[in-house]
Design a protein around this nucleic acid. Structure first.
Lengths: 346, 346
DNA sequence: TTTTATATTGTAAACGTTTGCATATTCATA
DNA sequence: TATGAATATGCAAACGTTTACAATATAAAA
């Protein structure tokens, strides 16, 4: 199958006429070794092409110097900024950072990766997203005490771990307020899969902001997509079919917004002159079919969250004392682009 | 730092009143164990929450059941399809598949990952792209015989490993022939960073197809970008400034094409009525600034390449006999979209 | 019932490191 | 030169598994 090289520390020791302990000290830069001996060892290492075996090290030191990240659908452009954040702080840490991707909702491979990683493969795991709120996985994680972990964007109440959360409620409120500020009163909401926590929170934010502003939340102004964001198209059509269509539509996310805008454009509406559309996520990359205006959106600091999660774990792994889990809620920010205009209805 | 659970196979053995060997046999499904004993062990495992330590296993078995993938800039939308391919076949293999990302041209972290992975962390590595043609890395890889690996899109001649290549030359020829087929004669080329092999090959393909068709390759019709694909904008402007501008432009890749198109549009040209533009890569995701037509392009089967690379390594790792490295060249395919039209020049 | 073959279990070595402790070497000091 | 302190090195146990091999229990055959 493969021709093992199999140069071990003992081979080096023999070659250099020292003990394996000395070699180990040279390799690990423990400076209790005489310069000429160190050189002899270094030469032997070079001559034999030795490099220390990871598994053996991990076994004796009980750590791997590796951090694992689990997301679903790593290929999703949504992760663009998050990955950039991970990459950036990976560069700055001594830990090797590795990504695992779970396709779609595949529970089996999700469990496979969670169990695999948390079992001595890495020192810490970063989990993105509510797709992980599976009973089985959560129960498993509760038991895990041999790795540190960070959950991003998912707040499982009874799980005592580091949590980096996004203020979805606040973000949705911001969005609606912004639309109101542009003079809109008839504001609809296209809501993503309502079983997902994120989506639910954004819906709540919409409702809350409307009520606080004394605006009625008309039932037919809230359209829910199926699990697929493509149905944003159908939702927008439903809104435009109303006798009094909204003048602005706030969508759960930009992917939905892109399809909603497409629907409006296909019916001859102009964006934002005839109808304003607002998204969430500030996703800078959209499917290539998209030809609408750039989407005014609520931006989450994914880049920072990616950076922070690696940094936080790094710090915790290096600290000698037990640390309380952190819990950070990140605020969102409106990014004004082209898809929202001033309300023209009287 | 962290409260170790530390349940070992010995704890289970004690709890179940058997030897560690028996526990091991149960865990690994070696069916030489009596049903009632098996159950006793299973109960003990459950009671103690045992799961086998990865490092210890890896150490004794000399394998990790893991495949590592190294790419630069994992966040780059270019990798969309490739990642999808990896994900898909990851799902189908028993191997855990993990991604490592190297930011930009950071040689230090590139080396870090290559050395880290090839040293008992994984059983096999997949390397994407010519960014790895660093002397130091290549020399290192030559020495490595304890992992299998696949190189995608980079053919280092004296490196005997599995290679999955793309016929860039042929793809470029296809593209130019296609443009000629549309009646174009004045065909320019915007060439990416000419130090990169890929780009060089595509340039060669362009020249070759032009010559074979008896068309002159005018020097000013070949524009090279700097290292940044954004300079496709400037290149297009240079072409449009010529007294006889081309009627069609073939670009090294879609990212460049998107900027070239932008430049043409900004000067009031219509695509494809006034000038045709063709790309390479069939990148379905483009930066959100892009508002041009969908780009007619040469598509590489990245999804298949992703799938194949994992599959090939899986097979090789499981085979007991030594296998010759494979070398596959993938053919490209024209994807007709909106950016190329029939030539209107007399 | 005894013998033999077979199925099940246990013992202990090995995997390749690190590291506490013991020993050996060096060096400065008296 | 002898002494002690400081420095450098080696020995061997430990990390948690797997797996040949040995030992035992069980079943089948005589």
């Amino acid at each position: 199958m493969k021709s093992q090289k199999g140069v071990s520390i003992l081979d080096v020791a023999r070659e250099a006429n020292v003990s394996s302990a000395t070699v180990s000290r040279v390799v690990n830069n423990i400076n209790k070794v005489k310069p000429e001996v160190r050189q002899k060892v270094l030469d032997a290492i070079d001559a034999l092409g030795y490099s220390p075996n990871h598994a053996a090290r991990a076994l004796v030191k009980q750590k791997t110097n590796c951090i694992g990240i689990i997301v679903n659908n790593l290929h999703d452009p949504f992760f663009h900024d998050l990955i950039k954040g991970f990459e950036m702080s990976a560069q700055q840490t001594k830990y090797a950072v590795m990504f695992c991707s779970v396709l779609g909702g595949d529970v089996a491979s999700k469990e496979k990766y969670v169990k695999y990683l948390t079992n001595g493969v890495v020192d810490a795991v970063i989990l993105y997203g509510s797709y992980l709120s599976d009973e089985s996985v959560i129960n498993y994680l509760k038991e895990i005490r041999n790795v540190d972990y960070v959950m991003i964007e998912d707040d499982v109440p009874f799980l005592a771990c580091n949590k980096l959360l996004i203020d979805n409620l606040g973000g949705a409120r911001q969005a609606v307020k912004y639309l109101i500020g542009k003079g809109h009163r008839d504001i609809a909401h296209i809501c993503g899969n309502p079983n997902k926590k994120v989506t639910k929170e954004r819906l709540d934010g919409y409702v809350d902001a409307m009520e606080k502003a004394g605006l009625e939340v008309k039932e037919q102004y809230v359209q829910c997509t199926s699990t697929d964001y493509r149905s944003g198209y159908a939702c927008m059509n439903a809104l435009l079919d109303l006798e009094q269509p909204p003048t602005a539509v706030f969508c759960s996310d930009d992917a939905i917004a892109s399809f909603a805008i497409r629907a409006a454009l296909d019916r001859g509406f102009r964006i934002p002159e005839d109808i304003s559309v607002m998204g969430f996520d500030n996703q800078t990359i959209l499917p290539d079919h998209y030809r609408g205006p750039e989407i005014t959106s609520v931006s989450q600091p994914l880049y920072n969250i990616g950076m922070d999660s690696v940094r936080i774990l790094s710090e915790r792994l290096n600290s000698s004392e037990e640390m309380e889990p952190v819990r950070i809620t990140y605020q969102t920010e409106i990014v004004e682009k082209e898809s929202v205009g001033v309300c023209r209805r009287e």
